[in-house]
Amino acid sequence: MKPVQQESYRVFWHSNCFSKNGGPMNIEQLTMKLIVESGTAKSKDMEAIESARNGDIQEAQRLHAESDKSLTAAHEIQTDLIQEEADGAESAASMILVHAQDHLMSAMLVHDFAQEFINLYERVERIEKQGGKLI
């Protein structure tokens, strides 16, 4: 395994990737942003499922749409990182970046399933309203 280098000279100019002071983010800041955006997306999805379970489908859909925004932001960072590597930049993955990828993967999985859960809860509610019983 390659030693991890500090690559603060690698900066990203993506529209989503500006640090507080307005400058471009370095790889460490991007990694944290990837974790935060993925984490926020997953958290919103879990709240969406809970809302659907409590019968508030509209709120569930709203939370799922919010999660979508965070997930898109996370995905853009991911795309930038891959693009950068494809363009020939040498990249050494740090443990924390691997961890960030893990967050993104789990967020994407939860996002798809959250929609399925919302649909299911909606369907259950409809059946129950029609007087049907679930065993």
């Binding site: 974790i35 935060v36 984490g39 926020t40 809970e50 967050h103």
Partner: peptide
Amino acid sequence: ILLGPQIGY
């Protein structure tokens, strides 16, 4: 107790 944003739910 401080929760990370990813387990805010």
